[in-house]
Amino acid sequence: MEKIYNESDIRYDYRKLTKLLIERGMTITTMESATSGQIASLITDTEGSSAVLKGAFVTYCNEAKIMQGVPAEILEKYTVYSKETAEAMAKACVKTYEANIGIGVTGTMGNIDPANPEASVPGQVYFAIVLNGKVQSYYVELVPQPTRLAYKLAVAKEVYDALMERM
């Protein structure tokens, strides 16, 4: 069955998440590539989010990932589109910001990445969540979405669902 991603529902979910983090006194950070900051943006749409979002990285190119603490060897060995890279991204942002939760997202949205054509498959997304020091990675295959924003929101929903299962 094909999943339907509804923007207003996703925005509502992230308001609930931000309020829950505020209530629990927990902090969160992201290192986003494919979603280019969409998850951090959704978190900050709720008043009081400055208490929970310590900072975030948009690392669209490999050099940016490496600059923010992702080991170059991981990118070389597993490619930028891998669970290992997503895990390294989540670990790196948690370490930098000393947050309770770190989210790393990498993948290919609607088209093949010209910089990594052999490794990119449209709709394949890897993400990882570090929660209180424990990392878990995930893989999703998205059906074609009508816009880039729709892809980003779909990934944000998948991340939200996975995080809420662990909270």
Rank of each mutant, 00 (worst) to 15 (best):
L131A: 09
A150T: 07
Q145N: 07
E73I: 11
I10P: 01
T27N: 07
N100P: 04
I22D: 01
Q136Y: 10
Q38V: 14
A64R: 12
S49C: 08
M164R: 12
G37D: 09
T18K: 05
V58Q: 02
P122Y: 01
A154I: 05
S50Q: 05
S41G: 15
G133H: 09
S8E: 14
L131V: 11
E73P: 08
A119F: 11
Y5L: 04
G55P: 09
G37V: 05
A150Q: 07
L142P: 02
E32L: 04
N100Q: 09
E2W: 09
E7Y: 10
N6K: 12
A88N: 01
A156I: 05
Y78H: 14
V52I: 14
K77M: 09
Q68E: 13
K157S: 13
A99P: 00
P114L: 06
N111G: 12
F57V: 12
A154G: 06
S120D: 02
Y97T: 05
I66E: 10
V80Q: 13
S137Q: 09
Y126D: 06
N111R: 13
V130W: 08
V143A: 14
G133Q: 09
G110I: 00
K83P: 10
P144H: 08
Y160T: 07
L149V: 11
I22T: 05
V121C: 06
I10D: 05
T79H: 01
S41Y: 14
S120T: 11
G123F: 00
I43V: 15
T85P: 01
E73Q: 15
E141R: 15
E158C: 14
E165I: 09
F57C: 03
G110H: 00
D113R: 00
L17E: 04
M67R: 15
K3M: 11
K16A: 10
T147N: 08
P114V: 06
A88C: 04
T59N: 04
D45N: 14
P114S: 08
A150G: 06
M109I: 03
N100T: 06
L153P: 06
I28A: 09
Y78R: 07
V140N: 05
Q145F: 06
G69E: 04
V70H: 04
V130K: 09
D13Q: 15
D9T: 08
I101R: 00
D45S: 14
V125P: 03
K152M: 13
S137F: 05
E118Y: 09
Y5H: 11
A128W: 03
A150L: 11
I101P: 01
S36R: 14
D13E: 14
V121K: 14
P122I: 02
E84C: 02
D161W: 05
P114W: 02
I22W: 02
A150V: 07
T147L: 08
